[in-house]
Amino acid sequence: MTAYLTFEIRRTLRDAKFLLFAVALPVGLYLLMAGRFIDQGVPASYVMGGVAVFGAIKSALDVGARTAVERGIGWQRQLRLTPLSGGGYLLAKASVAMVVALPPVAGVSLVAALVSGVRLSPGGWALAVLGVWAGTVPFALLGLLIGQFATAQNLQAYQGAVVLVLSFVGGLFIPVSTFPQALATVAKVLPSYWLAQVGHAAALGGDRWRAALVLALYALVLGAAVVVRYRRDTARA
């Protein structure tokens, strides 16, 4: 398991284009949005929370979902012919997703502090960066689940749709308080809404524990789904 994790992390860190994009996209998005929203009286720290969550979610999902390609070419099958267990493989992949999810959160937070002058207490920063990062676990697992269902061909479509729904309906870019009632109800079902609550609580206060509980439940359910799906796939192959 450690050997495989090391291998995967080395592979990921070598993919400079992927890592750069993972950070540049949310940072660029933040700069674009902060300029407009701050003029309208929205605090920069609020924008920071939503965009940091977007960056973390997208990176975590990307890593997990890309396992569809490896599954397609038979790499997972090859690994089943080694002592590496299915659980070890999934855990390594989820860990890599988490490694890649940290830089976008840190990047957006750093730019918000340097460019927009966002100031938080040490505890506030810990929540904004580490809290949001830790809350990304269910999305790493969701990515793995997509990877177990999608094929290399339809992966982009699946992935795009999921990121879009999680970001917009989850209220990462537009505050849920401005949504129509029905849409606001849907938003509150999504894990991205709850992770945004964590991000916003860092600056503006709010109930972070309820959010943590919802995210933990999501992690449990998605983790179980990934394992069950992986086992089924084994039985079929």
Binding site: I73, G74, W75, L81, P83
Partner: peptide, 17 residues
């Protein structure tokens, strides 16, 4: 046997990253 490395397998479908 697989876990102990007693059997080496080349499956039909390719698997190289």
């Amino acid at each position: 046997a697989v876990r102990k490395g007693m059997v080496g397998v080349m499956p039909q479908e390719g698997a190289l990253l």
